[in-house]
């Protein structure tokens, strides 16, 4: 019973919280549009820059010693993205068969090693580098540890021969507002609870950088100058 209540609370806070946060961002105007890309003079070019920055983590590739950070953080986000895609099958009524089913074990192995390894890198670097220690907040460590807990419990669970049909049944029953009781092992509940905590935490934390990366005002601003000219009519 408590698991169901907690789920609905967490989902509501997650969805309403994100909407609220995005609303507060949108409500503040951009009185002076100041972009950071010199050739960005149209919405199309702004979108192009944002996509390049988000898909390839381009700013981390610029000269200046951030390459290891690029590698660690990009691999983490890719592995996370693939993991989340893999979870889609829990939310759909119909069975999904991935094309080229041979990929699945390779993908699974890749994700289940890269994901925790890159996360541990992100955690360790924050502990090892003095300048990062100085500027990190307790929240930064909390999020990394929370994610680590989710990932490790998820890997253990995935390798424990858990009854995925039962999990799917449970999830779908909650989403269709006809919740049922299920008998699942403790490792599932640990994973599930940590995920719900993450959902509640999400809108009020730096995890909103997910949206921030897409609508950062210095990237969405492009210069529509009418008064500037590069030539005189002379």
């Amino acid at each position: 019973m408590i698991d169901i209540i907690f789920t609905y609370i967490a989902l509501s806070i997650f969805i309403l919280g994100i909407i609220y946060k995005l609303y507060t961002w949108a409500k503040s105007p951009i009185p002076v549009p100041i972009g950071i890309y010199q050739d960005s003079t149209s919405a199309a070019s702004a979108i192009k820059h944002i996509l390049l920055d988000v898909i390839f983590f381009r700013p981390l590739l610029r000269f200046g010693g951030n390459f290891i950070l690029w590698l660690g953080s990009w691999l983490f986000h890719i592995a996370l993205f693939l993991t989340l895609i893999g979870h889609i099958k829990l939310f759909l009524h119909y069975p999904i068969v991935l094309p080229m089913i041979e990929i699945r074990p390779i993908l699974k192995l890749f994700v289940s090693t890269i994901l925790p390894a890159s996360l541990i890198y992100l955690l360790l670097r924050r502990i090892v580098h003095r300048d990062l220690r100085y500027i990190s907040t307790p929240a930064d460590y909390f999020v990394l540890l929370l994610l680590l807990g989710i990932i490790i419990s998820g890997i253990i669970m995935a390798n424990s021969g858990i009854n995925l049909v039962a999990v799917k049944y449970y999830i779908l029953s909650i989403l269709s507002f006809k919740p049922v009781k299920v008998d699942l092992p403790i490792i599932f509940w640990i994973h599930y609870t940590l995920v719900l905590i993450l959902l509640i935490y999400f809108p009020f934390s730096k995890l909103m950088h997910l949206f921030g990366a897409l609508v950062s005002p210095t990237k969405t601003s492009y210069h529509k100058t009418k008064a500037h000219t590069k030539k005189l009519e002379l």
Partner: peptide, 24 residues
């Protein structure tokens, strides 16, 4: 200022302390 300028509000909230800026 956070109400008047989206940059102020967002830059207060979306930094992840990755430190890519530190040595720049």
């Amino acid at each position: 200022l956070a109400n008047e300028r989206r940059s102020v509000r967002m830059f207060m909230e979306i930094c992840v302390r990755c430190g890519a800026c530190i040595k720049q």
